[in-house]
């Protein structure tokens, strides 16, 4: 990206990180990626009662090139998958993905030939939002959590360090199937 990625680590970088995070989270532009039932709830969230404008993101961009958040709202079929990836690739970095609803997160109840079993097979997902469909309040909660994540995101050498740490943690984590017990 720009100059901010080239800064030496230290006080300047962390300050820039905070400023950039604050600016980025305050005006997230979502791309319209409504697919199924969740899309209607997403539109409801943008409409009068729930009013996403309070979080600086009421304008859903028609073009992915002007958007930095993709809300995958609904089931992703095998036919839609390449389209979804192309839309994602057209978005400029930094970009985030919310997987809205169980169908997008894991295929949900449609465990069959037609549906991609989780949109994370195609694009990296930042927030998984359960529900069928999730209530608008839940979507707003996911968005607020994403704001926190955006605020805390790292730049330059710090980003490399964070990526390294995340990878290490993932490598050391137990696979889900080995984590026994009811509460995990």
């Amino acid at each position: 990206m720009g100059l901010e990625e080239k800064l030496p680590s230290g006080f300047v970088l962390t300050t820039v990180e905070q400023a950039a995070g604050w600016v980025r989270k305050s005006s997230v532009f979502p791309a319209t990626f409504g697919l199924a039932c969740c899309a209607i709830e997403m539109m409801t969230t943008g409409a009068g009662r729930y009013d996403l404008a309070r979080f600086g993101m009421e304008v859903f961009r028609g073009s992915p090139r002007q958007a930095d958040l993709m809300i995958v709202a609904g089931r992703v079929s095998q036919k839609m998958a390449p389209v979804l990836r192309q839309v994602y690739d057209q978005m400029p970095s930094p970009k985030w993905v919310i997987s809205m609803g169980v169908c997008a997160s894991s295929g949900g109840m449609f465990n069959n030939y037609a549906i991609v079993q989780g949109v994370d097979h195609i694009v990296p997902v930042d927030i998984y939002l359960p529900g069928c469909p999730p209530r608008p309040e839940m979507l707003m909660d996911a968005i607020l959590k994403l704001h926190q994540k955006i605020q805390g995101s790292k730049l330059g050498v710090n980003a490399e360090e964070a990526a390294r740490e995340a990878e290490e943690a993932a490598l050391n984590a137990l696979p889900l199937i080995e984590m026994k017990g009811l509460l995990r």
């Binding site: 079929s77 465990n111 030939y113």
Partner: peptide, 11 residues
């Protein structure tokens, strides 16, 4: 069409 084909009838 078919971009939202969910296979509900088969399910």
């Amino acid at each position: 069409i078919g971009y939202l084909h969910t296979g509900i009838e088969k399910n």
